[in-house]
């Protein structure tokens, strides 16, 4: 009897925690459906929401451009990082390397360098390349993709290596006996088996790239700016479009949210596998 009560209580607690965790997001959505005046006075009228901010935000700031740039850059960077990591991770998992420890150290090492230390040199390097060579990295999608790929590849390799280790060697060996070469076995057998890991790595890299604001502020001017830059255009020195800012917050969360829900089954599996292997 008391065990059942405790169980009920814990169920209720779980739902309460969930409600607490979700409430700020709910508040964001509710706020985006109000007018500037209601927001600045704190006088919400929840019964008569307006989509005004959502229609006006595209006119007052060229938000489409930022959104599109973010989508292109983050997708490309996450794809590249995942692809590199799949190859490198596989090699590290299958062929005996001396440097397993060195790799872990290297991965942690890249995470240890604060962006503020190498941002200025990267900026200068990009500008130098632009002025002295035909390589266009400054203020281009390519440049940002390169930077973000480099950011996330080390962690991604670390991730992927564990997924590959978890895949039994027998599977590939069987395929190779059946006439596949190693590459064929990798593509046909190993990659599908590692799919959750690939998805998890991709989504993880995508989320981080979506979030980055320090480098994109310095390395772009007008062609490759992403959402973190664009959203701040709603905050002006002479006026603030609060409702549109909230609407832009919703719009910038939506694509990642959709990506998340579309892949969450695999994503959770991927993170889970990563966690269990440590």
């Amino acid at each position: 009897m008391s065990a059942r009560l405790v169980n009920r209580g814990l169920d209720a607690l779980t739902w309460l925690v969930l409600a607490l965790m979700l409430s700020p997001i709910l508040w964001l959505v509710l706020s985006s459906l109000q007018t500037d005046g209601q927001l600045s006075r704190g006088a919400y009228d929840l019964l008569s929401p307006t989509f005004d901010a959502f229609t006006r935000m595209w006119q007052s700031v060229d938000f489409e451009r930022y959104l599109l740039n973010s989508l292109i850059i983050c997708t490309a960077a996450a794809l590249c990082a995942t692809a590199f990591a799949a190859c490198a991770g596989y090699a590290l998992a299958r062929f005996q390397f001396r440097g397993g420890k060195a790799l872990s150290l290297g991965v942690v090492g890249t995470q240890l360098i604060p962006g503020s230390l190498f941002l200025l040199p990267v900026f200068m390097g990009f500008v130098w390349l632009k002025q002295n060579t035909p390589i266009a990295l400054f203020d281009t999608h390519l440049g940002m993709v390169l930077v973000y790929t480099a950011f996330f590849t080390p962690v991604a390799i670390y991730f992927m290596r564990y997924f590959f280790i978890a895949i039994p060697r027998d599977l590939e060996e069987a395929a190779m006996v059946d006439g596949c070469n190693r590459f064929g076995a990798f593509v046909k057998i190993v990659l599908p088996a590692a799919a959750p890991g690939l998805v998890a790595t991709f989504v993880y890299a995508f989320l981080f790239a979506w979030d980055e604001l320090l480098f994109v502020a310095a390395l772009t001017q007008e062609n490759a700016e992403t959402i973190p830059i664009g959203i701040r255009n709603f905050i002006g020195n002479y006026q603030e479009r609060t409702a549109q800012l909230m609407a832009a917050g919703v719009v910038s969360t939506l694509p990642v949210l959709i990506a998340f829900f579309a892949t969450q089954r695999w994503l959770v599996k991927g993170i889970t596998a990563g966690a269990v292997k440590g």
Partner: peptide
């Protein structure tokens, strides 16, 4: 529940900061 519980992780940091800064305002 497990899926929904993950959603705050999806909200970009700059949105988190704008949103919470807004929620913290002392008077409104």
């Amino acid at each position: 529940v497990r899926t929904l519980m993950l959603t705050p992780w999806i909200v970009p940091s700059f949105v988190v900061a704008v949103l919470w800064g807004f929620m913290w305002q002392s008077d409104v």
